[in-house]
């Protein structure tokens, strides 16, 4: 029976179209997971891990490296849940996070891959402040400063009566954890009436746009924006020190220099791709660090990293 003779002249849906869609679906499902190294965590360490992944891809294109940046806290959550193999961290793992890993049966090793200085920056139009003491930083950033330390003159009477506009990383950031711990004395204890952003660029833009601004973030971001920002020296009692590669490495820029870590799942080291990537990482990281504004680790630390890694790799996978 052909009603179409009488009714609208349109073609019914073609069966071949449906069939080809089905074939596409089956084809897609048929492919399995490829050899993947999954990394998430600190946006500070992301720069290193991604840059090394890029070069690694040229020598070992068969190993697929995926790098994301959920923040150190977010990374450890995924790490403890077993969703990723490597966690980029800009602070050591906390007891609570380590307990979460243990509960899920996740053992790990820690590799120290670089040093990062935290830069305290102000607007270039700021002509009253070249250096700041850690006590003044605490006066500005401690929790009690909220709604009370609002002007530069509140910190130091010699400074002008200009609104203090504060910019800093958000609470999921390892930079935030580290800064609050060494400056305010307790991790995550900070005034909250500042402009937070997980995006370091947003912080750069914020500080660059306000005469009375002050902000802190990784030194690497300052290095890319020297024309928009003014870097402050930090005085922790031994005189003002400007952060440079030398002062970050030898520890004189304190307390705002910190080590950066990779946390690696022990059982991920059964995956040959992970081992290859990590070995490549340790070979290259000291070359890459200065290019993204970080400071290489000394040779003895690198040696210790290699020992840790070698000891953790199961014999079978090394070949």
């Amino acid at each position: 029976m052909h009603f179409s003779v009488l009714l609208p002249k349109v073609r019914p849906l073609r069966r071949s179209t449906l069939a080809s869609l089905l074939v596409l679906l089956v084809g897609l499902v048929g492919c399995g997971r490829t050899n993947v190294v999954s990394i998430d965590g600190s946006s500070t360490v992301f720069l290193l891990s991604a840059a090394i992944a890029e070069e690694f891809n040229e020598v070992s294109p068969d190993v697929k490296v995926v790098v994301s940046q959920a923040g150190t806290g977010g990374g450890f959550k995924k790490f403890a849940a077993g969703e990723i193999q490597i966690c980029d961290a800009s602070r050591p793992i906390t007891e609570a996070e380590a307990a979460a890993c243990k509960k899920n049966g996740i053992e790990f090793i820690k590799l120290e891959v670089a040093f990062d200085g935290l830069a305290v920056v102000v607007n270039p139009a700021n002509d009253w402040c070249d250096s700041i003491t850690t006590d003044q930083l605490k006066t500005i950033w401690r929790a009690e400063a909220a709604q009370s330390v609002m002007k530069w003159s509140d910190v130091n009477p010699d400074w002008p009566d200009i609104e203090l506009e504060l910019y800093g990383p958000g609470t999921d950031s390892g930079t935030y954890d580290y800064f609050t711990e060494v400056i305010n004395g307790e991790a995550k204890s900070s005034r909250q009436d500042y402009s937070p952003s997980e995006s370091d660029n947003a912080l750069v833009q914020g500080v660059a746009g306000d005469k009375g601004s002050l902000g802190y973030f990784g030194l690497g971001y300052y290095a890319e924006n020297t024309d928009k920002l003014k870097l402050l020296s930090v005085d922790s009692g031994d005189g003002p020190i400007i952060p440079t590669a030398a002062t970050v490495r030898d520890g004189t820029y304190k307390p705002l220099a910190r080590p950066l870590y990779l946390y690696v799942r022990q059982d991920a080291l059964r995956n040959e791709g992970v081992v290859k990537y990590l070995n490549y990482y340790l070979d290259k990281v000291n070359d890459v660090s200065p290019r993204v504004g970080y400071v290489p680790v000394p040779d003895e630390v690198m040696e210790a990293n290699r020992k840790t890694l070698d000891a953790a790799v199961p014999r079978v996978a090394v070949n």
Partner: peptide
């Protein structure tokens, strides 16, 4: 965030 490959299968990043 950063991948140097195209997905081969539907479970790939």
């Amino acid at each position: 965030g950063f991948v140097m490959f195209t997905p081969r299968g539907i479970n790939d990043s």
